[in-house]
Computed example of a mutant assay.
Amino acid sequence: MNKIYKLLPLFLGLISLQVYSAGCAGSNGNCAEPSKYILTMTKLELCTSVPNTGPYDVTCNGATTVGTGSLEFDVTSVSAGQAIATFASTKGLPIGTTFTHIKPTMLRKIQLQGSVSVSGSGFTTFTCHTDSSATLNGANKYNRLLAGKTSGSPTLMTYYLNTDSGEQTQNGVTYTSQNAANLMKQCLNQDCSSTYSWTNYNKDLPTSTDSRFGLSIEDITNSDDDFSMIFALKEPYTVSEVAPKIDIAFGTKMSLSADTSNGTSCSISPYYVKSEITITD
């Protein structure tokens, strides 16, 4: 485990939260810790096993739902553990059942606030801030990287997890959401009237680097408003007569990413949050 930089011992009923460092996101190391990283969870399931046939396989065998609804929480906040504790309940789990994985489903909407120092070859280092006034110029919200701002202070902006673009093959399968019709564009100014096209853009998990980023993520299309992921429990858990406690560790330290295509403007987006889940009596 990476060095723990913040520990929040929130043993709040059934769920507690810890925070530790996440890996650097941008290809040039353009990443930082956000001051806000707000997710909305709509469902939480425990799995007895997963096929794990590829990076987009989110099949959850023996699924048991422990939470449904709409929970908005900031994973950088000390109150996140308490919020999740009110959302999920482990009472009534089938005794003797062994769970190995967990499957959260979340809205593609992610709210971010923070600043990233952007550096690279051929241009002067500058700071990219989240911008609440950045717009899409009427474009599909799932096919744009919103512009950040290079002056002022960071403000809370709303980002949407993008649909992959370009032909991408994983384990011999070309995924249908990844095609030229979903061409990703980076907004170069606040109203997105000027853009830069990405011929190949995907959200593949860095599982080979650290499985705490997740084992798989759903291959979503432009018609999907939410997405699911699969995480392995730190250790398999067999249900006893005592309602267990779920401990969730989030890592957000380097989960805000910024990029530039011209050295003067920037786009800003979230990177995956590391999550480590433990179930104990």
Rank of each mutant, 00 (worst) to 15 (best):
Val75Arg: 05
Gln113Trp: 07
Gly92Phe: 09
Thr90Gly: 12
Arg144Met: 10
Cys60Asp: 00
Gly69Tyr: 03
Gly114Glu: 06
Pro154Cys: 10
Leu156Thr: 15
Met157Lys: 13
Thr135Glu: 13
Ser153Glu: 05
Ala80Ile: 12
Ser153Trp: 05
Gly114Asp: 04
Thr124Trp: 00
Cys128Gly: 10
His129Pro: 05
Gly96Lys: 12
Thr86Tyr: 00
Thr98Phe: 02
His129Met: 10
Thr59Cys: 05
Phe87Leu: 09
Ala139Asp: 05
Ala83Glu: 15
Ser89Cys: 05
Thr65Trp: 06
Leu112Arg: 11
Leu107Glu: 13
Ala147Val: 13
Leu136Thr: 14
Leu107Met: 06
His129Arg: 09
Ser77Trp: 03
Thr125Gly: 15
Gly138His: 00
Pro104His: 00
Thr127Trp: 00
Gly114Lys: 11
Thr68Lys: 00
Ala139Leu: 15
Met157Val: 07
Ala139His: 00
Lys109Glu: 10
Thr150Phe: 02
Ser70Tyr: 01
Tyr159Met: 07
Val75Phe: 08
Pro94Cys: 13
Pro104Arg: 04
Cys60Trp: 03
Ile110Arg: 09
Glu72Arg: 01
Gly69Asp: 11
Leu107Gly: 09
Leu71Glu: 14
Thr65Pro: 05
Gly81Ala: 11
Gly67Phe: 02
Ile95Gln: 10
Ser121Trp: 03
Lys103Gln: 12
Thr105Met: 02
Asn143Glu: 02
Gly122Pro: 04
Ile84Tyr: 06
Val118His: 00
Ser77Cys: 12
Gly148Trp: 10
Thr127Glu: 07
Arg108Ser: 06
Asp57Met: 04
Val58Ile: 15
Phe73Glu: 11
Thr86Pro: 01
Gly138Cys: 08
Cys128Ile: 12
Phe99Thr: 11
Ser89Trp: 00
Ser70His: 08
Leu145Trp: 06
Thr59Lys: 03
Ser119Phe: 00
Pro94Leu: 06
Ser77Pro: 02
Asp74Thr: 11
Thr155Asp: 10
Met157Thr: 10
Ile102Phe: 15
Ser115Lys: 12
Cys60Arg: 09
Phe126Ser: 13
Val66Ala: 01
Thr100Ile: 08
Ile102Lys: 02
